[in-house]
Design a protein around this nucleic acid. Structure first.
Lengths: 215, 215
DNA sequence: GAGTTGTCAACTGTCGACAGTTGGCAGTTT
DNA sequence: AAACTGCCAACTGTCGACAGTTGACAACTC
């Protein structure tokens, strides 16, 4: 299991840096200065270097020899390539979830969908948090630890690119419909349908991302 | 000294260690002593630590706080989980390859298959090298860099577990047949067939691995 | 003035040393 | 003899400092 408490400074640094990268506090394209960040975190360069290497292995930073670490910025080709990977993983997860889900998995999924609807009706924007929660719940229902691991990493990278995503209401509505349809397929144990719907869903999200990238 | 492709000592250490882990020179279950290995490689603990962390992120080592890095050993559940991931990735790759392959991709695939047959008829065992080459060629034909990246990592982890795999002739023959069938599907541009065959192929390989794990 | 070369500051890559933690062993107790 | 306790060696986690490389700017040549 992953250590609940990151005792090591490197582990803490990973958490802090990941947060800063994902929230855009360290903007895409910018460089990470080792001594500067080390001082800011109050640690030495050793643990920080390990943290940087770790985040690089997750795809949240790119390493350039003798130049340092950079936050990768969005790029159409990268978005497409990333979504091909995400589609491969999440479609497989959807299939597995359809055949392995328990009843409590189903309840959890419906719960998330219901909360999304409530939120939407209340006029509030569909929070990305709930979208993530839905996919996370589905992944867990698939009960495939290695796939779950990879999906988590890919979703992180998607979040990183998400700065360029404007969530217009039509897109939100379509996403919620997709989610509902997915839950139905999973409930029926229809693996093929789950995979198909997931593919269509992700294809839609990818297209949305590409258009809002070009604005 | 030798002018290496990887200038950094950490990069070199990664290559050397990866080789030693994959060949079983460092046997599964054993621990990696930082000072000992550092001395053996003639480098300091800093770069070595980064190398160890890198290999851990690839799944070739597992890290235990305050205890060090260990080479993970085979386990039935792990094999199954890993092959679920591999199946997800390679089936998607097979689909993409079927729709994107060029004629030279096709030639390369047929080349590898032909060499496998020659090798088999010559009475020599089907070398794992050729199996890897086939899958690698197929992945490249899919032209999806992020998927290719992940497949490479997963295949590495499979190689790591492969110590327990006895390649009996029937299995080799079946594998070659699968490969031929895959090439046919890819040649026809039949994505669905490519995916189906790949799934069956990997399912067979996984089963073979599980049985030779239990003897 | 354009291009080339020399110089420099900043930063990464690397190292050796110290501190904190872990697991095991010897000695002691019941 | 089994279990508990305290100590010890080994190892990891961390740090500060030094060396090598890179990119930029200035000086110089044509």
């Amino acid at each position: 299991m992953t250590p609940p408490l990151h005792l090591s400074l490197a582990g803490q640094a990973v958490d802090v840096l990941r947060e800063q990268v994902l929230t855009g506090e360290i903007p895409p394209g910018s460089r990470v200065n080792e001594v500067e960040v080390a001082q800011k975190l109050g640690i030495s360069r050793g643990p920080l270097r390990e943290a940087i290497r770790h985040l690089a292995s997750e795809g949240l930073l790119t390493l350039v020899p003798h130049r340092g670490a950079f936050v990768p910025d969005a790029d159409a080709d990268e978005v497409r390539a990333l979504f091909e990977l995400r589609t491969a993983l999440e479609c497989a997860a959807a299939e597995l979830a359809a055949s392995r889900r328990t009843d409590v998995d189903l309840v959890r999924l419906q719960e998330v969908c219901a909360e999304s609807r409530r939120n939407y009706r209340a006029g509030q924007p569909f929070p990305y948090r709930l979208d993530l929660a839905f996919h996370q719940t589905l992944i867990d229902a698939a009960r495939s630890p290695r796939i779950a691991e990879q999906v988590r990493l890919v979703q992180q990278r998607v979040v990183l690119l998400r700065s360029a995503l404007d969530d217009d209401p039509p897109h939100q509505h379509a996403s919620m419909d997709d989610h509902d349809e997915l839950v139905k397929a999973v409930a029926d144990g229809d693996a093929a349908a789950a995979s198909t719907v997931m593919r269509r869903h992700l294809s839609r999200v990818c297209a949305q991302m590409l258009t809002s990238l070009n604005h």
